[in-house]
Design a protein around this nucleic acid. Sequence first.
DNA 1: CTATGGCACGGATT
DNA 2: AATCCGTGCCATAG
Length: 456
Amino acid sequence: MRFLALPVAELESTLLKEINDNPALELIEELRCHGCGKRLARGPCPNCASPQGDNAPIVCLSPRTPPGYRAADADEAEPRDIITPERLDEYILRQIGPALSPAERPIAAYLLAQLDEDGLLVESPAEAAAFKRAPLATVEHVLSLIQHADPPGIGARTPAESLLIQLDYLAETVSGSILALARAILQDHFEWLAKCEYARIARRLHMPRSAVEAAARFIQRNLTPYPARAFWGERTTIGGNGGPALINPDVSIGLLSQTPDSPLLVEVFTPLSGWLRVNPDFKAALADCPEADREKWTPVVERATLITKCVQQRNHTMRRLMGLLAGEQRGFILGGDGDLRPLTRARLAKVLGVHESTISRAVAGKFVALPNGRIVSLAKFFDRSLSVRDRVRALVESESRPLTDDEIAEALEREGVRVARRTVAKYRNMLGILPAHVRARVARLRPGPDYPLPGS
DNA sequence: CTATGGCACGGATT
DNA sequence: AATCCGTGCCATAG
């Protein structure tokens, strides 16, 4: 039984199944303090939670959080506890369903299945027609239905096409010369637009540069190259953009008091809100009962004890791990990405006296809620380069003129971090920061009024 | 010639 | 054993 690898939510459902068909398993309401064994409802035990020593973290078990999901960082999207793209399929199918003939239905389903996570179609209509042995005209008809369904721009073949569809959609409610210009740019000069080559576009279209920049700004503000993400975002985010995943944490870290040097309070969530044990009555009954029954029920009881042991083992390991982790990464937990200390699973395994793979299993696929409300992957605690990436971000944010990768590498060197120029480029990309020469162009685009958009 | 992205290699990590 | 990550080399665009 690999319980350690499971996040709370999944462990909870497996345990519910076990309890359901194992009469020897019993769920007690209370939770016990791991220190003194005292029963308590939730949170730290008042006896044992006294600040021991400096500001060592206090680790306790807590009943699982209610299934109210919270948003995680945008970059943590993992296919777990998430509004999955399948829902998007259904959502669109419901809209276009009435317009479909019985023969077109499977084609629609197939096309929807071919959408990538951004909502773009990876296959050409011709390929789809060949695969489904349907007339090309039929496929194209179905596709056009999809493209006019709600998340505007869905089902396009390329980002440019998606943007054009969204533009048409907008044209139904707003008007203005800027729409025509935006359309012209998207149709014929998307490559240049992506690189912010406004002067070049202006020359080619015989338009003033300012008009081109206004159109670019309009596109940037009101259209999205990722129509599916916009859909998720609209439905699921709590005030973010880009559609972060909805997950619930396995661990929550808070502060015990408001003072800045307050110890950290680490709550490791237990599956189910109670204490799992082997029913003592059941065990007693097993002692004096007919021989045949005893043979039948003994393995059941054995399985029950095994399960409780495994759960306790899991909780124990998680507690020890989180205690150490919270102590080591206190700065990161309270501060920001820049305060993350380099830490490897292997080193932690050595300190804890367990095998490396144990740590790997415990960390994989788990999430922790930080005091500032963010929910991040536990793996982030072991990110080797996060703090350096953060410094790159800071450098670019406070730059007076766009710095080249080489210059950023130099600046980093002066701060005591040695990284190759090539690596800076990689980090820059991860952060979604454009190359220096492009930033120079974008900088001039910043200020400007939003184009009015109905309903947003 | 300079700045950057692609590919791939080797070493560390899991 | 598989994977990830930093880096060097080279091609390309401006």
